[in-house]
């Protein structure tokens, strides 16, 4: 399954992103995340991404963020979560 991240991943978006990942992970299939359109990202969404990564690993299926945009990569690095992008 593939999910395209929206351009704005701010606090207001976090609950939508959370629901999206909960639904997707419930299907127990590999997830390919397209992060190329992300222009802004804050902590609320980064931690949803982190929790989703962990959940996928524990469930034993692949979870990968493809083509992270520069802003996403920079913010993940700033927050010390750049391993998210290489998971």
């Amino acid at each position: 399954m593939s999910i395209a991240l929206p351009s704005v991943l701010d606090t207001a978006t976090a609950s939508v992103l959370h629901s999206t990942f909960c639904d997707a992970i419930g299907r127990d299939e590999a997830l390919l995340i397209d992060g190329s359109a992300v222009e802004r990202v804050g902590q609320a969404c980064l931690q949803v991404l982190a929790a989703a990564t962990v959940q996928a690993q524990r469930s034993g299926f692949a979870f990968r963020i493809d083509e992270p945009s520069a802003p996403l990569a920079e913010m993940a690095k700033l927050a010390g979560l750049d391993s998210l992008l290489s998971a």
């Binding site: 909960c22 931690q47 982190a50 962990v54 959940q55 927050a79």
Partner: peptide, 25 residues
């Protein structure tokens, strides 16, 4: 320089409240 991001309090995805902050550095 950020030397460590602490995810120790980050709950599992279903239990996560997106309006709460969980990370520490």
């Amino acid at each position: 320089t950020v030397t460590h991001c602490d995810l120790s309090t980050l709950p599992a995805l279903p239990a996560l409240d997106p309006d709460q902050a969980y990370l520490g550095w």
